[in-house]
Design a protein around this nucleic acid. Structure first.
Lengths: 344, 344
DNA sequence: CTGAAAGCGCTTACAG
DNA sequence: CTGAAAGCGCTTACAG
C-alpha cells in the first residue's frame, strides 16, 4: 500500500507525450477517424501513462449528457425479493453500458427522498423506484430535468409515470380461493403495514375471494402492520389461540409466511392449520408440510422496469405505461390441509 | 409524462435571477459566509428555479475531488449472502454521505475487470471487491489513481490491500469435528468451484478435522465444482448411492446445503444421514430435522470492509490490514443424527 | 464579504 | 483530418 497516490494522467498529459492536440486524443479515445500515425502515437502514450478517460468529465461536455448510470431505490437491498428485482434491472442496464446505484429506504419517506436527491445531483439518467411515500409529485422535478422514471412493485401517485406491478389482487384471491375450495370457511389474513400498496391489494384480493364465495368477512381474523417475521409469528399465535380460530391462514408476504410457519410449528399444529403465502420462500418445498405459495417473479419485475426505463432514456415521451405480471399458485401441501371438522 | 424535459437550472441561472456572481451562489450552496441579504436573494432564486447543484461537476473542480460514490463488485447482487454484505456496506457508506454502485461478476474475470474499469472511469472514491480473478495486480492502477480498495470474502493476490474474511478453515473444521464427535467416520464433502478461495479454505478445514481425528481422507467422498443447488443435489445422491457411502455430509455453502437437503429428502434419508452446512439458510430451523449450520456474518463482513475503505479515503496509507471474523456452529438436529451403525 | 477570472477534464463547433 | 478556442457546471485562488 506504500506507493503515494500519484496524479491520474489526463488527456493533456497524453497529448503532450504524443505531440498532438487534446482534441485528437479525444477523437482517438472515442474511436473517430484519425490519421493512423497520430493514432498510433496517441495509443502508445495512453499505454505508457496508463491513461483512462474521466467519464464524468466527458458527460459534462457531451451532447447527450448521459452519465450512463441509473439509481435504484428499494425498501432494502438485502431483502431477497428486492435483490432479485435488482439483478433483473442490472442485467438490462448492462446491455446499455449503464451502471447502477442502489439504496435502501427502509420504508422511510425521508430516506426515499434523500436517495432520489442524491442520485439526481449525480446526474443519473434514470430512476427505478419502489416508493414508500404517499405523494410522488416531488419526482416531477427529476422528470423535468430529463431523468427517466419507472415505478416497480408499487404504482405512482399524483404523477403520471411508467410502472411494473404484480397482479396482487388476483394472486391473493387465487390463493384464498384455493383454501376455500379445500373446505375452509374461516381464513385468517396476516398482512404488512396497511400503508404499503401491495399489502392493501392483497387484502383486497382476500376480501374479494370471501365475498365471491358468500363468506362473511370477520375483521377479527385480519391482522395488519406485521413488520417482520417475529410480529407475524406473534399475530399467528394470537389468531390460533383465540376462541373460534381460523382453520387456515393467508400470509401476505415472504417474511410473514416464515413467521407464521414458525408459529404453527411452535404450537405443533403445522399439520392441522392450512397456510398459503404470497411470495416464494427458500426451502418452502422441503418443509413438512411443504409451503404452498402464490409466486411472483421479481427478476422479471426488474427486467421489465429496466426496459421501460431505457425506452424513456432513448426518447419515449408518451403516457405512463403499466405492466402487470401474473402470479402462479404452487400447491405443496400446507395449502391443501383440510379443515379439522372435515378431517375428523 | 407530457411536459417537455426542460433544461435544468444552473448556478449561472440562479446568479442571474439573484443579481449576484456565481461565486456567491456557490458559497451559499456550500454554506459559507455570505451577507444575509444576498444569501436570501440566492435562496429565493434557488427555490423559484428549482435549482440543485450538479455534484459531479463540483467534484471536477473541488480540492478533495471526492465523488462521494464507491463501487461494489459481487459475484451476484441477488445472492442472499452478498446482498447482506451489500447492506452492511451501504449502512456505513450512508454515514459518509456516499452512494454505492453495485455489480455482479458471475465469477467471470472479464466481468470483474469491466466493472472495475467502469467504476474507475466514473471516479469512485473506493472499491469493495469480491474477486474472482487470480491476479489482482491490475488493481494497482486504481490504487495509484487514489482509489481506496478493500477485498471482502476473498483475499487479495499479487497486491497488498485490506481484506475482511470469514474464518473459513476454522468454521469448516468445527462443523466437521462436530460430526466426528457424533460418531461419524465417513463424512462426505460437497464444495463449490475449487478456484474459489472460500471453497478451498473450507476443504482445508474439513481435511484438517479428519487428520486431527486420525481419520483417513477418502477422495471418493469429496465432490467439488458444484455451481448450484441442482449440481449439489446430484452429487449428494451419487455419494449416498455408491458402495460404502458416507454417514454424514458437510456442505460447503448455502446453495449446496439446500441442494443436498433436497436430495436427502428425495431419497427419504433425511433422518438417517447427518448434514452440517456452511452459511445459514432461511427456514433452516423449521425443516425436519432442523439444518445444523456453521454461521458466518455477511452483514458484519460488509460493515467492517466499509470501515476500512473509508479509513483509506480519509488518508490511511499503511500496510494491508486483515480482519477475520469468527463463525458460530448452530446445532438444529441434522448435524446431531448418529451414524446408522450406532443408531442400530 | 464579493466578483471577475482561471481552470477541473473533457467534447465540440469552427477554421484551416 | 487537425488544432486552437470555447464552454459544460462548478470551485477556488486572487483582487478589491
Amino acid at each position: 500500500m506504500n506507493e503515494p497516490p500519484g496524479r491520474r494522467a489526463t488527456m493533456k498529459d497524453v497529448a503532450g507525450l504524443a505531440r498532438v492536440s487534446v482534441a485528437t486524443v479525444s477523437r482517438v479515445v472515442n474511436g473517430e477517424d484519425v490519421r493512423s500515425d497520430l493514432a498510433a502515437r496517441v495509443s502508445d502514450a495512453i499505454d505508457v501513462l496508463g491513461y483512462r478517460r474521466d467519464f464524468t468529465a466527458s458527460t459534462l461536455r457531451r451532447a447527450d449528457r448521459h452519465s450512463a448510470s441509473i439509481g435504484l431505490v428499494f425498501e432494502d437491498v438485502s431483502n431477497p425479493f428486492f435483490s432479485s428485482v435488482h439483478r433483473g434491472i442490472e442485467d438490462v442496464a448492462r446491455t446499455h453500458g449503464t451502471l447502477t446505484f442502489a439504496g435502501s429506504s427502509d420504508e422511510d419517506p425521508d430516506r426515499e427522498r434523500e436517495l432520489v436527491e442524491a442520485f439526481g445531483s449525480r446526474g443519473v439518467d434514470g430512476l427505478v423506484i419502489v416508493p414508500c411515500t404517499n405523494d410522488h409529485s416531488y419526482l416531477q422535478r427529476e422528470r423535468r430535468g430529463g431523468t427517466a422514471l419507472v415505478f416497480v412493485d408499487r404504482p405512482p401517485r399524483f404523477i403520471d409515470a411508467d410502472a411494473v406491478l404484480t397482479d396482487n389482487v388476483g394472486g391473493a384471491r387465487a390463493g384464498v380461493e384455493h383454501l376455500i375450495a379445500g373446505g375452509h370457511r374461516r381464513i385468517g389474513f396476516l398482512g404488512d403495514r396497511p400503508a404499503i400498496f401491495t399489502a392493501q391489494e392483497r387484502l383486497r384480493g382476500y376480501l374479494a375471494a370471501l365475498t365471491a364465495a358468500g363468506l362473511a368477512e370477520d375483521l377479527e381474523l385480519v391482522r395488519l402492520g406485521l413488520v417482520d417475521s417475529d410480529a407475524a409469528g406473534a399475530a399467528a399465535k394470537e389468531l390460533l389461540l383465540a376462541s373460534d380460530p381460523p382453520s387456515a391462514i393467508f400470509a401476505g408476504q415472504n417474511l410473514i409466511t416464515v413467521g407464521a410457519v414458525r408459529a404453527l410449528r411452535e404450537l405443533g399444529r403445522q399439520h392441522e392449520v392450512a397456510i398459503v403465502g404470497f411470495d416464494d420462500v427458500v426451502l418452502g418445498d422441503i418443509v413438512d408440510p411443504g409451503i404452498s405459495v402464490v409466486m411472483q417473479d421479481p427478476y422479471a419485475l426488474g427486467r421489465e422496469a429496466a426496459k421501460l426505463l431505457f425506452a424513456q432514456v432513448a426518447g419515449y415521451r408518451g403516457e405512463g405505461r403499466r405492466i402487470e405480471l401474473p402470479t402462479r399458485l404452487v400447491p405443496r401441501g400446507s395449502g391443501e390441509l383440510a379443515p379439522a371438522e372435515l378431517a375428523a
